[in-house]
Computed example of a mutant assay.
Amino acid sequence: MRNIPVNLQGYKLMVTESPALKMRENDNGVEEVVTDRSGVQHFVVSLFAKKRPQEGQFAEKGEEIKVTLTADPGDGFEEGTYVQLIDATVSPWQTERNGRYASGLAYRAAGLTPQI
């Protein structure tokens, strides 16, 4: 399954690395901008996600996630800014290289909006 809708309303999301063009190294070792099939450039942002504590509970530890944005988020999303994701999805991934396996979750969103 891919692009599973995800609800992160119960989490505080703080920008830890401002949005930037998503880059990938090609087979020749040259970095190139990541685009979709239509040629639209993708962006990436690092967020610190921490669950909002419920009354009478301790706040759990958070974790940093990287989110691919399918549109330019615009200005105003510097480090420390709290945001919400627009149309967030998650996809599991797995890869094998030289007998070593790695797996994880890939987050994607249509954009960012400031947390109110």
Rank of each mutant, 00 (worst) to 15 (best):
Q9S: 15
Q9M: 05
Q9Y: 01
G10R: 13
G10P: 02
K12N: 14
L13E: 05
L13P: 07
L13F: 03
M14K: 14
M14A: 12
T16G: 10
E17C: 06
E17V: 12
P19H: 00
P19T: 00
L21S: 00
L21N: 00
L21R: 00
K22L: 10
K22I: 00
M23W: 07
M23C: 03
E25Q: 14
N26K: 07
N28W: 09
V30M: 10
V30H: 04
V34G: 00
T35Y: 02
D36I: 06
R37K: 15
R37D: 15
S38P: 01
S38H: 10
G39T: 01
Q41T: 05
Q41D: 05
F43A: 00
F43Q: 00
V44N: 05
S46R: 15
S46K: 15
L47T: 00
L47D: 01
K50G: 06
E55A: 15
G56L: 08
G56A: 13
Q57S: 11
A59L: 06
E64G: 05
I65E: 04
K66S: 12
V67Y: 02
T68W: 02
L69C: 06
T70H: 09
A71K: 09
D72C: 11
D75R: 10
G76W: 02
F77C: 08
F77D: 05
E78F: 07
E79W: 04
E79S: 08
T81H: 07
T81D: 03
Y82M: 14
Q84E: 14
L85W: 00
I86R: 08
I86Y: 01
I86N: 02
D87S: 14
T89N: 10
S91F: 01
T95W: 04
T95Q: 12
G99Q: 11
G99I: 10
R100Y: 10
Y101W: 08
A102S: 15
A102V: 04
S103M: 13
G104I: 01
A106F: 08
Y107A: 08
A109T: 09
A110Y: 03
T113Y: 02
